[in-house]
Design a protein around this nucleic acid. Structure first.
Lengths: 327, 327
DNA sequence: AAGCGCACTGAAAACGTTTTCAGTGCGTCT
DNA sequence: AGACGCACTGAAAACGTTTTCAGTGCGCTT
């Protein structure tokens, strides 16, 4: 039915071994190589990747497991990862867990069954912890959210510094009743929160923190409740783009003017953050570099499996906009 | 090295055939099935998907090729597709062409080499046309952008009606110098433009159209030029979410107030469209239904390959917001 | 009591490649 | 002239499964 390597071999008048070598890398005379290529064109041959992977015991595939494909941060990273992979002749399997540990576990098992070369992984919740127990059959590089130290290579933002930086900025503008609304599932949110709290204490202010599921609807509800209270904060630090969006909605709904009634500062320089009025002050992550560094760590780990574990920490860039301007 | 089905068989004291049947579907006594499952747990066995696919000649995988993963429309569709696929015990390979015909061709070839069960495809540019020539080894369902009629199943928005609807709405609000800024690469944009032009003519107005690469930067530049002209339009119809975003930026930059100086109406009810001030009037696409219908068509095509070609046309829902309110 | 069908099981073939192994022929060195 | 190495080639094994084929044993029918 479907044309296989033996059909090509017959058409070219050579053995299947020669076809395989001509298509891949092997010593083949120029004459035969051309014959084979002609036969491939004539027959419309497409190699069967399953057979190829089975025999060669190498999938040349890396898995990319992200927590939320709708988050522009992850789409940007995925693009960087894909480009780097193609440059090495590798495929990428993109998996979206939607912050669901069950989906995450399923994808991890899928990666095992696919016998992937390696995985770049943004774990949700306890994902990274459970990761340490089982030994997967492939190297893993964590991005965005680091697991327990020492288990896997990782590349993350300097989250404590970024969280503290937003507090410093707000304090400099004269705000003091600064609240923090953080995601409940990721280590990233925990670290940003730690930075926030440390900076508040350093400035002699009292931290005021709430946590929420990392989606816009939950964030809006939580922010709305908070803003309705008597001693509502005069500024908010939000731990990612979705939570920031929820906070903007809540402020609008409550009729609060930004930044006069409420200042906002968050993470992720998404396209819409400078479209709202006023623009939102955010910490921008070096997404391209995160993706590229993750691939670099992964390839180096594949080349030298017993290397010591490495952690790359990148700095964010604060984008100052109207939402934190006082007076 | 790695544990295979023969290791499980040995551990369970049965043949590999029995293990295979116990794990898949085959007549196996309850006692042996439990022995096998225990052996699987004990050995930590993970089936090798490449081997499984090779032997069974069935990938149980569908490919989803989209033009731009950053477009929330496609991420939403991909979620719907994925859910439907899992319900059938299938995997999804998500591919992002980024509107690049070369990447598109590469992914199409990859799908052939993966021997996928079927593909859901949002072609860019001439992709759909070239698709008709070669006969792929799998059924294809086109979404968002239909190719030449009669070649493939498809599910699309009623784009002409939606384009016309926006014009009608603007005319009703009293606008008459209504321009249209459309993407240059997709059939979707062409259809929306056709609807726009027909409606303009029907209202006795002169259509005024420009086309632009479907990204926010290009759209902003084009809109900026247009708005700087002496006889600039008093309202704009924008053919997708990215172009709409570009137009908003251009209006801001030009210091035009929306909707007093310039009304805006576009496509895709993205989260940010009600965050800007004023909110943007858009046609919302039934993304979940598009994904679900596409999977339905695909599965039915797989079941009955010689069915006549079908085309599902869905209606958009107009979301009225401040950007088109006059006076 | 023999025959039949049914439910289950194992040995071995098969899936489409790559890779090993064992040659070829030919040029070069001694 | 013979030995050796080199560049190339084909036959066949191998990758890890599923599936076919050919039994088993057992209960039921005739």
């Amino acid at each position: 039915m479907t044309v296989g390597i033996r059909d090509v071999a017959r058409a070219a008048g050579v053995s299947t071994a020669t076809v395989s070598r001509a298509l891949g890398s092997g010593p083949v005379s120029e004459a035969l190589r051309e014959q084979v290529e002609a036969a491939v064109r004539a027959t419309g041959y497409r190699p069967n990747l399953s057979a190829r992977r089975l025999r060669s015991q190498s999938a040349r595939t890396i898995g990319l497991i992200v927590a939320d494909i709708r988050n522009p941060f992850f789409t940007a990273v995925s693009r960087a990862v894909e480009d780097a992979a193609f440059a090495e002749g590798m495929r990428v399997i993109l998996c979206n867990t939607d912050e669901d540990p069950a989906r995450e576990a399923m994808y991890l098992r899928l990666m095992e069954e696919e016998r992937v070369t390696g995985v770049i992984f943004a774990p949700t919740g306890g994902g990274a912890e459970s990761l340490r127990e089982r030994s997967l059959g492939f190297p893993v590089v964590l991005i965005d959210r680091a697991g327990p130290p020492g288990a896997h290579d990782s590349v993350v933002l300097d989250n404590p510094a970024a969280g503290a930086g937003l507090v410093d900025l707000l304090v400099r503008q004269g705000f003091s009743r600064i609240g923090g609304l953080f995601g409940s599932t990721s280590s990233t949110a925990r670290e940003r929160r730690a930075g926030y709290e440390a900076a508040m204490v350093r400035h002699g202010l009292v931290p005021s923190v709430r946590t929420v599921a990392p989606n816009a609807a939950a964030a809006e509800a939580a922010a709305a409740r908070w803003l309705a209270e008597a001693d509502r904060p005069e500024a908010l630090v939000l731990s990612n783009g979705l939570i920031l969006m929820g906070a903007v909605r809540a402020a609008r709904a409550a009729g609060l003017r930004v930044p006069d009634d409420l200042a906002l500062a968050g993470f992720d320089n998404e396209p819409w953050t400078d479209l709202v009025e006023p623009g939102l002050t955010v910490v921008e992550q070096p997404v391209d570099e995160i993706g590229a560094q993750a691939m670099r760590l992964l390839f180096e780990r594949i080349a030298q499996p017993d290397q010591p574990v490495r952690k790359v920490v990148l700095s964010g860039r604060t984008v100052l906009r109207g939402s934190t301007r006082r007076g």
